[in-house]
């Protein structure tokens, strides 16, 4: 870690060997969440306290008495990541400890049941990091739709039925909601873009105040694709504009990644069982959503 300590920016070459989330965890093969967590922890390091609400990570990260975490870890409930980490962070501040308190919630725990506590903590500008690993449905309970599930996707509560084919509503733009909180840092990231991912983790580690870090987390089980394709699908999500990488400081977008060649959304959904039933009209509707988002974020038509 010498070079890094000398001020060199974190990159794949100097990313530390240290692991703070041990192997032996029980995530499905090909799950993106442990990729996110392992590599994020390499940068956040030893002086980190981790909170997870109810989610896959809670379960695959440890079943008593076994725990994958090598740093202080706690769990309370589902809907209160924002407030739970607020309490821990304030207590550690009062104790004079220099510790990064990080909550890692899924999309259900962020978009839906956890949005109140999250919004409250952000509005108070608590000195914490909130990570949303977004696999676009309630995977821990068996693939039920969430506010993050994209349009058309099949879940066990939005089945591709005889009358209704998958989810009728589009994905909620959570990062934009967080951007509206006027907080020091909002970043979206994808494991497919390693340098960008590492840069963002490193940057947020050194910011004081509320930091919101939102990473797309492809799920082979819930999205129904071959586990080896996790990174490939994450890359296509970015390249199609389904997932946009940016950083925002106090509400202003300071850095945004634009795919060199925008691929049609059809190319992204191909190979994912959750979209298999989609009609051409439905694919068009999804493409319209992507294009609207594109125009809003880049200020130009795609």
């Amino acid at each position: 870690m010498d070079k890094y300590e000398r001020g060199e920016r974190m990159n794949l070459k100097n990313l530390p060997d240290d692991e703070y989330f041990t192997p032996g965890h029980t995530a499905c093969p090909g799950c993106a969440a442990p990729i996110i967590v392992r590599n994020m922890m390499k940068i956040l390091g030893k002086d980190t306290v981790i909170y997870t609400p109810a989610n896959c990570l809670l379960v695959f990260g440890g079943t008593y008495p076994y725990i994958a975490w090598k740093v202080p870890y706690f769990h309370e409930a589902f809907e209160n990541t924002g407030s739970s980490i607020s309490g821990a962070a304030r207590a550690l501040k009062k104790q004079g400890k220099k510790v990064t308190v990080v909550g890692i919630a899924g999309d259900g725990g962020t978009y839906d049941i956890g949005i109140q506590a999250l919004s409250g903590a952000a509005e108070r500008n608590e000195d914490v990091i909130y990570v949303c690993y977004d696999n676009e449905a309630y995977m821990n309970t068996g693939i039920q739709r969430s506010g993050s599930t994209p349009y058309g996707a099949e879940t066990t509560t939005t089945p591709a039925g005889k009358k209704i084919l998958g989810k009728l509503r589009h994905k909620k733009d959570m990062a934009e909601i967080m951007r509206a909180h006027d907080i020091p840092y909002v970043a979206t990231a994808s494991i497919s873009h390693i340098a960008d991912f590492l840069k963002k983790v490193e940057k947020m580690k050194n910011i004081e105040g509320f930091r919101y870090f939102h990473v797309l987390s492809p799920c082979p089980t819930g999205w129904r694709y071959d586990p080896s394709k996790t990174v490939e699908i994450a890359r296509k999500a970015v390249d199609s504009g389904m997932w946009t990488l940016y950083e925002a400081e106090y509400g202003e977008i300071t850095n945004i990644y634009k795919p060199k060649k925008k691929i049609p959304v059809e190319e992204y959904i191909r190979g994912q069982g959750r979209f298999r039933h989609m009609t051409p009209e439905m694919i068009e509707e999804l493409q319209r959503w992507v294009d609207r988002k594109w125009e809003r974020l880049y200020g130009e038509k795609p």
Binding site: V59, Y64, I67, W69, P72, Y73, F74, H75
Partner: peptide, 8 residues
């Protein structure tokens, strides 16, 4: 480090 409130 300690783990508090794990899945049990």
């Amino acid at each position: 480090p300690m783990a508090i409130g794990t899945f049990t």
